[in-house]
C-alpha cells in the first residue's frame, strides 16, 4: 500500500518502504552465497558439459567431436564394469545406515556418557578422506595393525588373508573404511531427528507398557523416515562416486577401481579430459536416475499414505515383515 505512495517520494523514503527494505535485505543476504555457488559450481559444471563434447587435454583446447566421447563411455567395458565395484559400496551404505540407526536409538534414551560416545563416533568424519586412506593403508598392511591384533587373538599369519591383495575381500576392506568414516555422521543426523520427537510420546508409550523395540518401531522410525530416506539417497549416490579409499589405499589396482578412479586416470594420466567429462556427466545421469528411483520407491512402497503416522507405520511393518506379509495384513486390518 505504501509502495504506491512511495513511487513519487524521495530516495530516502523509497528505502523506508518496508517492501523495498525486505527485498534489499534478501538481496544482500543472497548475493554472496549465490555468487559463490555460481562461480564455483555452475560455471565449472557448464564448462564440463562443454568439455565433454571435445577431444581435449587440460592445456590444449582440442577439437569438437560431438557425441564421440559419450559413445566411448558406453562402449568401453571398464567404465560400466567399474560400477559393479560400487555395489560393494552400496552394500556398505546399508550396513552403515543400520549401524548408525542402531547406535542412535541406543543413545536417544538416557545413556551415561552419551556425549563421549557421540564424540568418539563422530570423530572419524572429521578426518580428511586422504588421511583416512593412509590410516587404513597401514592398518591393512601385511603384518601391521590388523594382522597384529588378530595374531594377539591367536591367529597365524598364514591364516590371515591379504586384506588388500585378495580380490575376493579387498573391496570389502575398502568399504569398511568408508563405513567407519561415515557411520558417526549418519548417527548424529539420526540422533538429531530422534531428539525432535515429542517426549510425551515416549511417556505415553511407557504408560502403555511399550518396550524399547516397540518404541523404536512405532515412535522413532515413523518420525525420522524423512531423514532415513535422505541418508539412504546420499549414501547411494556417495557409493556410486566412491573415490578416496580406492585412490589412496590401492590406487585402483587389484580390481578396486571405482568409476571415479578410472575417470581420474583417464583425465590425468592419459590426458583424455573430454572423455572424463563425458564420464562425469553420465555418472551424474546415473545418480539422478538412482535418486528418482529411490524417491519413487519410498513414495509407493515405504510411505504409502504418508500423512497418517499409523498408516505409515503399518506400511513399514508390512515391508519389514515381508515373509509374513499375508498373515500380518489379516492381523492388522481389523485394528
Amino acid at each position: 500500500m505504501n509502495a504506491i505512495v512511495a513511487e513519487q517520494k524521495s530516495p530516502l523514503q523509497f528505502f523506508h518502504d518496508g517492501r523495498v527494505q525486505r527485498k534489499l535485505v534478501i538481496f544482500c543476504f543472497m548475493i554472496l552465497p549465490m555468487a559463490l555457488l555460481i562461480v564455483f559450481t555452475y560455471v565449472p559444471f557448464i564448462k564440463m558439459i562443454q568439455f565433454s563434447f571435445y577431444d581435449r587435454t587440460y592445456l590444449d583446447s582440442g577439437k569438437f567431436v560431438g557425441l564421440k566421447n559419450y559413445l566411448e563411455v558406453f562402449t568401453r567395458s571398464e567404465c560400466f564394469g567399474s560400477l559393479a565395484v560400487s555395489l560393494y559400496y552400496m552394500g556398505g551404505a546399508v550396513v552403515q545406515l543400520g549401524l548408525a540407526l542402531f547406535f542412535a536409538s541406543l543413545m536417544v534414551f538416557k545413556v551415561k556418557g552419551a556425549g563421549v560416545y557421540k564424540a568418539c563416533m563422530f570423530f572419524p568424519y572429521l578426518i580428511c578422506g586422504i588421511a583416512v586412506g593412509f590410516i587404513f593403508k597401514f592398518f591393512y598392511s601385511r603384518g601391521y595393525v590388523l594382522d597384529t591384533i588378530l595374531m594377539m587373538f591367536g591367529m597365524d599369519l598364514e591364516d590371515i588373508p591379504y586384506w588388500l591383495q585378495n580380490q575376493s575381500i579387498n573391496n570389502i576392506s575398502l568399504v569398511a573404511t568408508s563405513v567407519w568414516r561415515y557411520t558417526g555422521q549418519n548417527m548424529v543426523l539420526f540422533l538429531g531427528a530422534m531428539m525432535s520427537v515429542d517426549n510425551d510420546l515416549y511417556e505415553a508409550a511407557d504408560l502403555d507398557g511399550a518396550g524399547k523395540w516397540q518404541k523404536f518401531r512405532y515412535i522413532i522410525l515413523p518420525s525420522i523416515k524423512t531423514i532415513i530416506v535422505l541418508n539412504l539417497i546420499l549414501s547411494i549416490s556417495g557409493s556410486l562416486s566412491a573415490f578416496e579409499p580406492p585412490y589412496v589405499i590401492t590406487n585402483g589396482t587389484m580390481g578396486t577401481g571405482t568409476y571415479f578412479v578410472i575417470m581420474n586416470r583417464l583425465a590425468h594420466e592419459n590426458q583424455k579430459v573430454g572423455l572424463a567429462c563425458a564420464m562425469a556427466i553420465v555418472l551424474l545421469a546415473i545418480i539422478v536416475l538412482c535418486t528418482v528411483a529411490q524417491k519413487l520407491f519410498f513414495k509407493y512402497v515405504f510411505t504409502d499414505g504418508a500423512d497418517d503416522p499409523e498408516a505409515a507405520a503399518e506400511a513399514k511393518r508390512q515391508r519389514k515383515a515381508a515373509k509374513a506379509a499375508r498373515k500380518q495384513k489379516k492381523e492388522v486390518a481389523p485394528v
Binding site: T57, Q165, N251, G252, E269, N270, K272
Partner: peptide
C-alpha cells in the same frame, strides 16, 4: 601414447596390471 592409454612413462596403471596378472 595418450590415445592408446598404454601410458608409457606417464601412467603407472598398465605396469601395475602386469604385476596383478602375474600374481593372480
Amino acid at each position: 601414447n595418450n590415445e592408446s592409454e598404454v601410458g608409457l612413462n606417464n601412467s603407472d596403471y598398465p605396469d601395475c596390471e602386469i604385476l596383478e596378472a602375474a600374481l593372480t
